[in-house]
Nucleic acid binder design. Sequence first.
DNA 1: CCTATTGCCTTGCTCAGCAAAGTATCATAC
DNA 2: GTATGATACTTTGCTGAGCAAGGCAATAGG
Lengths: 111, 111
Amino acid sequence: MNYDREFLTGTVGVLILSLLSERAMYGYEILQEAERRSASQFQMKEGTLYPALHQMERAGFLKASWRDSDTGRARKYYALTAKGRRHAESKRRQWDAISAAMRAILGAEHG
Amino acid sequence: MNYDREFLTGTVGVLILSLLSERAMYGYEILQEAERRSASQFQMKEGTLYPALHQMERAGFLKASWRDSDTGRARKYYALTAKGRRHAESKRRQWDAISAAMRAILGAEHG
DNA sequence: CCTATTGCCTTGCTCAGCAAAGTATCATAC
DNA sequence: GTATGATACTTTGCTGAGCAAGGCAATAGG
């Protein structure tokens, strides 16, 4: 199923922050992990992810560090800062509330 | 709780279509109904709703008709067309899938 | 009479996400 | 030896959703 892209607005942020709450990851890994866990429903675009990471780093939510992988290629890992962790929790709570409110409104017809 | 507006992108469409799936409503009524059902979590703005209604009407999803209320003030009622009904179901399915995918990705940490 | 509420509408802005492209390394196959 | 595809990061320019902030008009109530 293809989503209208509009649905994704906002979700990208929570998604990144939530994944990084578990462990530090590099960009490409985030793309794959999101796709894997959602059974390919989400296919975040690079032009969406990388600028978002940079912006969150500028905002002080993330700290980046280069590490070499075993294959020799360099990877840029992103880890949550303390500030970022608080922000992640806040965003997560917002998402939960939003989807609960949506259920309350839509639920009347279906289930 | 205040939401970052970004979260609302896309939800507005499903919301309107879903409410109108139940019965024809006028703009102001949609605003109030959404706020009421979500326990004031959603406060859709007029500058968001009305242009959205017009756009959906142009797209052939809605049919508008003026009716006088008992107070004498005219109200513009919007009803789904057949095309709009199909569109509403599609959007609704998309939203369900999106929130399921989000649960799959986010659920790992919380519940 | 004045203010709040109902009820509709519009213009101009911001900013998220995308498309599309570029750079570079490595593995595999031919 | 070289083409192809995956890995991995980045940028520029565009579109379009939602908002802020206003305006218009009728009614109700103090």
